[in-house]
Design a protein around this nucleic acid. Structure first.
Lengths: 248, 248
DNA sequence: CGTGCCAGGTGCCAT
DNA sequence: ATGGCACTTGGCACG
């Protein structure tokens, strides 16, 4: 583990290359200019930033404000140090970034080991599972399958109403918008055509829906049912398998 | 500027609170456990990570792999240090995060000043401007407006063909998919209804289009025209205004 | 503020 | 690899 304030260029070079080679995590505060060329082109004029280089060769640059990085390069990039310029190159997608270092304010590297992975609940998949296991939340609904495959996308929950009509359910963990309704519409049209059915009902299951989306939904004869995503881990078999080591 | 390896709890507390108060940027490598509750719930068991706290009270936690943070809290959160627990609270959206520090491997803080903002070209807006200024790339097309407002969304470019039929153009800077076609379809239907037109043509302008999207496009009588996003700064009036200080 | 939508989106999983 | 899509998406621009 190394931490050096204002390293000399030669010192910095040594520390940087060693950390890179050893697979240590690097965090440095520095004054720099950044150029990017790839899917777009960009320039970031000189300023003070945090530059992160991970053992997997991800490069992330943060300005001192905001949640998102201002510049970055993907995992498995190729990193070289050419005088005071860090050159980063990616093959797929083909991208280039150069970090022109003016001053390294602090250099820091350590061998971080982290075997844990995030365990989370409240996703759209959790919502679909919850509906599948407790279909009464949708009223007259008998579930038939989860994640029905269509060339036009996955159907979250698929089933029938008490009149035996097909029902397609599209879940959203947040407020549903126009895109959600169009997604549902696409599935309904596809299933109608594929299965040769006259009547296929569509349901948006979400905690809320926007005004426009509600209107479009009604124009198409679909329904909105208010459902909150479950904020707890469900006893889902597949999930348990994935999270086995966490719970054992 | 401070950089301390393995600070004692008391030292850490002093440095942390001082940096927070002074609005310095904090980067620390530490062994910790992270709990989150808000729009979802999550637990991240103990491991070594990089914790970033910015002057604007954004909190970002990175594992030693991957481009994206594993946990974060938005700008303007409320941060407190309670023994060895960093508590972070956000009002909108209502969210909570706790970082349970086991070991602080390195603590680092510095007053980063950065007045620069990213200057970029190659966005979808650049593409739409380019088409507006060089309409011949779409063939028989006479542009009428940019960013036409609809309750159902913005139309990228709006115009007429040589037969005086209305034409709606949807631009995508990457390969267009089903969502792009449905977006176009929504606009065309809206304009047909609003303006009482029988014929409204739709164009997807993008570098490429997926097979399914192509099929759906043709089913609806729309057209795909291959257009690459311009990778240079256009002499666009609005843009110049925004980027004035950069070019002056 | 809500609504809509782009993003160098990223990541995941499917065929 | 391509495709369809969720994401604690984040961020902006406009009503």
């Amino acid at each position: 583990m190394r931490s050096v304030i204002r390293p000399e260029p030669a010192t910095f070079r040594t520390l940087f290359l060693r950390a890179l080679k050893k697979g240590h995590s690097i965090s440095m505060h520095c004054t720099c200019r950044v150029e990017y060329k790839g899917r777009a082109v960009s320039t970031l004029e000189t300023g003070d930033r945090l530059v992160i280089i991970k053992p997997d060769k991800t490069v992330i640059i943060h300005q001192p404000a905001g949640r998102n990085p201002v510049n970055w390069m993907p995992v498995h990039s190729h990193i070289t140090l050419d005088e005071n310029i860090i050159r980063v190159e990616s093959v797929n997608p083909r991208e280039f970034m150069t970090i022109h270092l003016e001053k390294v304010l602090v250099f820091l590297s350590s061998p971080l080991t982290d075997g844990a992975s995030l365990v989370q609940a409240g996703s759209e998949a959790d919502m679909a599972n919850m509906i599948y296991q407790n279909p009464h939340v949708l009223g007259e609904f008998v579930p038939a399958s989860r994640e029905e495959q269509t060339a036009y996308g996955f159907i979250d929950v698929f089933g029938r109403d008490y009149n035996n009509n097909l029902v397609i359910v599209e879940c959203k963990r947040y407020k549903a918008g126009l895109d959600a309704v169009q997604q549902l519409r696409r599935y309904v049209e596809k299933i109608k055509k594929d299965k040769g059915k006259e009547v296929v009902n569509g349901i948006i299951a979400a905690p809320a829906i926007t005004e426009n989306a509600k209107k479009m939904l009604e124009d198409w004869g679909f329904n909105f049912i208010k459902v909150e995503p479950p904020m707890y881990l469900l006893p889902d078999r597949e999930k348990q398998k994935n999270l086995g080591e966490f719970f054992s």
